[in-house]
Amino acid sequence: MRRTLTSQERVVIEPVHLADFFTVFFSAASVILFGALYALLFAWSRVRGRPRLMPMAYAAYLGLAASVIVLGNAANLFNSHYWTFIVLLMLVGYLVAPHAIWHLCVGTHVGEDEAVKVSQQR
């Protein structure tokens, strides 16, 4: 049922086109895998005090962002305001989440001897 919607039309979702199936599955999996890689490298860089790992962490985030955009395109998310908002939410949320969780880790472990060292290193 391939039909391009005009901009006036408001539908809740526009189903994925057959040709984009693989792209959707692959990019969705990439979103999660890059997200984990980003979180992993980010945390690793901080916990071991290796700033050189940080660019790699952000490279992983770029991979995540690219995957989100590809997914958004393939799943027709940019055709509606609501789903575009979800895409933006993912982009911002996944960028910020590891930072926030890291701060929580440091904050909650304050008082533990090793954790103090980490917070001082930073």
């Binding site: 701060h103 929580l104 904050g107 304050v110 008082g111």
Partner: peptide, 13 residues
């Protein structure tokens, strides 16, 4: 010092 810090970090309590 850490003890006082523990009390200030309300968002991690």
């Amino acid at each position: 010092q850490t003890q006082t810090q523990t009390q200030t970090l309300w968002w991690a309590s």
